[in-house]
Design a protein around this nucleic acid. Structure first.
Length: 566
RNA sequence: GCGCCCGUAGCUCAGUUGGAUAGAGCGGCGGUUUCCUAAACCGCAGGCCACAGGUUCAAAUCCUGUCGGGCGUGCCA
C-alpha cells in the first residue's frame, strides 16, 4: 500500500541526500515516541557520501523542508530528521481507504497472476489428529489466506500420509487381531490400538516387522486383499479428519496423498537414472549427495518398495506440470528439514529451475509433558478433545458473562476454537512448545478471545450508535493521541500482511492484532465514542468502524471467527 | 562425530532490511464498575538480551568461538 505521507517525505529528502526516493522510503523509521514525530529519517546513511555529520544533515533537512498539506513540519533531533504528518489528512487517507476496501482492506494485488501451492496438515491415515496437527493445519491455513489477500491464486493441498510400511504393519496387525467390529464405532481408535499393540509386540519379535513390510509390498504390488483393506482404512480416517477440519473451518482444494504417486514411481526413477543421479548401493537405489555434503536419498529399498523421498519428488514434478507455481510451500515439522533439503537438491540436479521456488516452512515440536508426542507409542492428546474442552469452557464463560445472548453455542464455538487456534499462531512458528492445557484454554491476556472481545466491543459501540458510518466526517475532530496511534496502526496493516507472506509467518498477523487491539482497549477506556457532540461521535465512529474492519480481516487471515457479541 | 534450529524479566514470548530510553502477557503487589460488555483498563516491582571476542558512527539483531537445550543423521514418515 502506497503511503502518500512517506512518498512526500522521500520526494523532498532524496535530492538533498543523493539517495533515491525508494531508498529513503526503505530507510524511514518510526520514532520511539510519537511526540518526536511520525516518521524519522536516520541521517547516518548519507553521512559518508556527503562527508558531513549526521546531525548537520538532519538540521539541514529540517531547515530546507517545505511544509505541505500532508507533511506539515520537520524537526532535527540529533542525527534524526523527524517529520510530522497532518493528522486530519492522515485520518482521511487511511479511514476512507479502509472504508472503501472493506473486507479487502490490508490486501493488495501484487500476487495477481501467480500461483502459490501450500501443502499442509498432511496427517497419516489410521490415526487421530493429535493436538500437534494443529500446527501444520492452522499455519498452512493462515498462509493460504495471507497469500490470497495479496492476490495470489492459492492451491491448498492436504497430502495424506496414506502409503508406506506403516500401513503394512497396520494390515498385519489387523489380520492378526482385528475383525469386523474393529471397523465399527470409533474405528480410528480401534485401528490405532492395534497398531500400537503390534509395534510393542514387534519389539520382542522382529519377525513381525518383516511381516508388516511384506504386507506393504503386497499393497504396492496391487494385491487385491491388501488394496481393499487399505481403502477401508483410508475412508474411515478421512471421515474422522473431516469432522475436525469442519470445526476448525479448514478446507482443501486438493485432497491428495502419497498413494496417488505410487504409479508415477517407475517414470520418476527413470528420469533420475537418465540424469545419471541414481545408482545401486547395497541393493537399494540411491542418489548420492556427498558432493552437497548430505546423506544419500533412498529412492527404492532393497525389497523393491519405494520410499517417501521418491514419492515427494514425483509429487513435486506433477504439481509443477499442473500448476506452474510461483512458489510451493510445504508446511511440515522441523524434523524433516534434511528430507526437504535433499528433495529440493535432487529436483535441482534433475534440471528443474523451479526447485528454488520450493520452501519448507517448518515449525517447532509440540511436546507433551516434556516428551515428543508419539503415535507409535499411543502418546497423544487428540485434537478433537482439546477443541471440545475449549468450546465447553467458552460456553461456561459466555453463560456467566452474557447470559442474555441468544446464540451462545455458536459464540462458544468461535471463542473456544479461536483460543486454541490463536494460541498456536501467536508465537513464531519455529519455537518448540510444551502442550499446556491452561495456556491453550486461557481466555485472558494475549489470547484469541482478547482479540475477539475487542472486536465484539467495537461492534457493540457501532450497534448502539445505530446510524450509518459517515463517509466523510470532520477529520479534524480526531485530536486525541490514542486516536492517532490507532490510525498509524491501521496504516501498517498491509505491511504486516506482506511481512507475514515474505517470512511465511502467520504470527506477524497475530502480533499485529494484539498490538492493534491493545491500542483500541486503551482508547475506549479513556475516551467515550458515543457522546453528546454528533460531529465528534461521527468521526470517532468512522475510526472505530475501520479498526473493527481491520481486526475482522486479521482474524479471518488466521482462520478465526469474529463474533459480534460475546 | 557431523548438519540444522533455538538461548531476551520468575514463567511464556514480541522486538521489519543493524538505528533514538529493550516491550507485552501470565504470575506478584496496588487501583478502576451509578460511565459504549471488567474475557477489559491503569500503576508498581522485575533484564550483564547465555558467555567471550570481532565488524560498525551504531549490535538483542551481522561474523567467529564457547557453553546449554532441541531435532536430524541409508532401507519409517
Amino acid at each position: 500500500m502506497k503511503n502518500p505521507f512517506v512518498s512526500e517525505i522521500a520526494a523532498q529528502v532524496a535530492p538533498l541526500t543523493g539517495l533515491s526516493p525508494a531508498e529513503i522510503e526503505y530507510a524511514l523509521t518510526v520514532p520511539p515516541d510519537a511526540a518526536l514525530g511520525d516518521y524519522a529519517f536516520p541521517c547516518f546513511l548519507p553521512a559518508k557520501t556527503l562527508r558531513r555529520k549526521p546531525a548537520d544533515i538532519a538540521a539541514d533537512l529540517a531547515a530546507k523542508f517545505q511544509p505541505g498539506a500532508l507533511v506539515t513540519a520537520a524537526r532535527a533531533e540529533g542525527p534524526y530528521a523527524n517529520f510530522f504528518a497532518d493528522r486530519p489528512a492522515f485520518a482521511r487517507w487511511i479511514l476512507s481507504r479502509a472504508r472503501a476496501e472493506g473486507d479487502r482492506f490490508g490486501g493488495s494485488d501484487e500476487g495477481v497472476g501467480k500461483t502459490v501451492i501450500v501443502e499442509f496438515s498432511s496427517p497419516n491415515i489410521a490415526k487421530h489428529l493429535g493436538v500437534h496437527h494443529i500446527r501444520s493445519t492452522m499455519i498452512g491455513n493462515a498462509l493460504v489466506k495471507i497469500y490470497g489477500a495479496l492476490g495470489y491464486k492459492v492451491v491448498s493441498i492436504n497430502f495424506l500420509g496414506d502409503w508406506g510400511t506403516q500401513f503394512g504393519i497396520l494390515m498385519a496387525a489387523f489380520r492378526k487381531w482385528g475383525d469386523a467390529t474393529t471397523l465399527e464405532g470409533d474405528a480410528v481408535s480401534n485401528l490405532n490400538a492395534l497398531y500400537v499393540r503390534y509395534n510393542a509386540a514387534a519389539k520382542e519379535d522382529p519377525a513381525l516387522r518383516d511381516e508388516g513390510r511384506a504386507w506393504f509390498k503386497r499393497l504396492e504390488d496391487g494385491d487385491s486383499e491388501a488394496v481393499a483393506l487399505w481403502q477401508q482404512f483410508r475412508q474411515i480416517s478421512l471421515a474422522e479428519f473431516e469432522k475436525v477440519y469442519e470445526l476448525l473451518g479448514v478446507r482443501f482444494d486438493v485432497l491428495s496423498g502419497e498413494s496417488q504417486y505410487d504409479r508415477h514411481m517407475p517414470q520418476t526413477i527413470e528420469r533420475l537414472e537418465k540424469a545419471g543421479l541414481a545408482r545401486l548401493d547395497q541393493g537399494a537405489l540411491i542418489v548420492d549427495l556427498s558432493a552437497q555434503k548430505m546423506p544419500p536419498v533412498l529412492l527404492r529399498k532393497s525389497d523393491g518398495a519405494t520410499l517417501y523421498d521418491t514419492r515427494d519428488v514425483a509429487a513435486a514434478e506433477d504439481r509443477w506440470n499442473t500448476y506452474r507455481f510461483a512458489r510451493m510451500i510445504y508446511v511440515v515439522g522441523g524434523e524433516q528439514q534434511l528430507h526437504f533439503r535433499q528433495i529440493f537438491t535432487v529436483l535441482g540436479l534433475m534440471g528443474y529451475p523451479w526447485s528454488k521456488d520450493c520452501f519448507h516452512v517448518h515449525f517447532g515440536i509440540l511436546r507433551l509433558g516434556g516428551e515428543k508426542m508419539s503415535g507409535r507409542q499411543g502418546k497423544v492428546v487428540m485434537l478433537r478433545d482439546v477443541l471440545r474442552e475449549a468450546v465447553e469452557r467458552a460456553l461456561k464463560a459466555v453463560t456467566e458473562k452474557n447470559p442474555a445472548l441468544p446464540n451462545k453455542e455458536e459464540i462458544a464455538a468461535a471463542v473456544g476454537i479461536g483460543a486454541v487456534v490463536f494460541n498456536d499462531l501467536k508465537r513464531g512458528r519455529i519455537k518448540d512448545v510444551d502442550f499446556d492445557w491452561d495456556a491453550v484454554l486461557s481466555f485472558e491476556g494475549e489470547t484469541g478471545p482478547y482479540v475477539q472481545y475487542a472486536h465484539a466491543r467495537m461492534c457493540s459501540i457501532l450497534r448502539k450508535h445505530g446510524l450509518p458510518v459517515a463517509d466523510a466526517p470532520d477529520w479534524t475532530l480526531l485530536r486525541e493521541p490514542e486516536e492517532f496511534a490507532l490510525l498509524k496502526a491501521l496504516s501498517v496493516f498491509n505491511a504486516a500482511i506482506r511481512r507475514a507472506a515474505d517470512a511465511n509467518e502467520p504470527s506477524v498477523i497475530s502480533q499485529y492484532l494484539l498490538d492493534l487491539c491493545g491500542r483500541f482497549s486503551t482508547y475506549y477506556h479513556k475516551h467515550k465514542v458515543l457522546g453528546e457532540d454528533p460531529a465528534l461521535t461521527a468521526a470517532r465512529i468512522a475510526l472505530v468502524d475501520a479498526v473493527r474492519q481491520t481486526v475482522a480481516n486479521g482474524l479471518a487471515l488466521l482462520g478465526m471467527k469474529a463474533p459480534e457479541e460475546m
